[in-house]
Nucleic acid binder design. Structure first.
Lengths: 142, 142
DNA sequence: CGGAGATAGTCTGCGCGTAGACCAAATCGA
DNA sequence: TCGATTTGGTCTACGCGCAGACTATCTCCG
């Protein structure tokens, strides 16, 4: 019990992410995107460029987001005219995702903004170290 | 642009923290505490054992939490009978925090549970590496 | 064919996490 | 001393993040 918890790894992880999220939010604010909106837009856009029009489930899997939240955020993106959700004729339960022209124009700019934040945020540490360490923590089975 | 973002440090940081938060929540659930409730209870308890009865602001500074959320969560802890918020006679705006007998009994158990999660969660990596890396990311000015 | 179970998506509810506005009390300075 | 500013705390609002329940559809198997 060595509080104050300045040395607790979990505490540091938590605060590092909070700080990172604030930086990301500040960078995406001018683009009128939240962090999660960005992630889903970017993932959908990337899949679209590969010729895939994923279901919401597939996108959630790709982005590592909760399916229920994905549903909700995608509707927000749809309301902003950045994506379209069309019913899959082969499975009328599911919806295929298509990034609109406006979304396709926004996505690369948002990605650049986020990569810029990442570069600045992680500048104090070596890239390979971060990826190795966080990769193991984010998904120990990988 | 190397999506899927499996290699993006920010993406990994985000997901590592999400996973950690789920583990923490699972460990604290049986104690009827959320993560933030735990942090504030533990910090207040620790300060109390040092003979300090901090204001909410001071506790928020110690825990690195938002002041407004701290206010709200402390009222939840008060409703559970874990802390008391008594008006400071020297500054009637402020409230001094005192962990109750019940809170003082719960805090060490919760701390043990969280330390257990941390030990398991960070087992795949070296403790010194994590602290060095996350410490710099959590507070680059330190 | 028809019922059982699985799957895609949505709805409700709760607790952070952050921002902006607000109030009351304390402090500082002319 | 009185007014301006600062400080401690609360309120409202919005968007995650997660859990549980719900509908509609699809699939599989007898």
């Amino acid at each position: 019990m060595a509080l104050p918890p300045g040395e607790s790894p979990g505490f540091l992880l938590w605060h590092a992410t909070l700080r990172w999220q604030r930086d990301i939010a500040a960078a995406l604010g001018p683009l009128d995107l939240t962090h999660v909106q960005f992630v889903l837009l970017a993932c959908a856009w990337w899949l679209n460029t590969r010729g895939e029009h994923p279901h919401q489930q597939a996108l959630a899997r790709q982005a590592g987001t909760d399916v229920k939240m994905t549903s909700q955020v995608l509707r927000a993106l749809e309301a902003k005219g950045l994506v379209e959700r069309e019913v899959d004729p082969l499975d009328t339960r599911a919806k295929r995702l298509r990034v609109t022209k406006s979304g396709a124009e926004l996505a690369p700019r948002a990605i650049a903004a986020v990569e810029d934040v990442d570069a600045r945020f992680f500048r104090p540490v070596a890239h390979a170290d971060v990826v190795a360490l966080l990769g193991r923590l984010a998904d120990p089975d990988a």
